[in-house]
Amino acid sequence: MNEVIEYIVGTLIIISALVVLIASVGIVRFRNLYARMHVVTKVSSFGLLLLLIALNLLSMKFRILIESLIIFHVLIFLSPISAHVTAKVALWLNENPSAPDKEVEETKEKE
């Protein structure tokens, strides 16, 4: 029984690491600021949920369960608020929500 749990935990760790890798590839590939915010709030918290489940399967203790519930609560209910504040500032700085990024034009100062 103990060996089966260890095999399951090892597979869960590799899957969640791949999910976090996919999320950070999406950060680079997406062209729009708001689309990048989707990736940060959803995919990353999904990967951390898998990691916390693996940790709880490995050590069956009540204290670990309570502490990981607090961590997951912080991730779920505080990351939408920070995304809201950032999106509001970006909207206030006149960023068009559906247009792709503009390339930064480097102003060459002539002496």
């Binding site: 959803k42 999904f46 929500p97 559906s98």
Partner: peptide, 24 residues
């Protein structure tokens, strides 16, 4: 819904989407 949303967006990245066609 939390599990489904993470899975859907991860699949969208794997398919090669570039985050266009969004809107308010």
């Amino acid at each position: 819904k939390i599990i489904e949303s993470g899975w859907v967006v991860a699949l969208l990245i794997l398919k090669g989407s570039r985050g266009e066609h969004g809107g308010m």
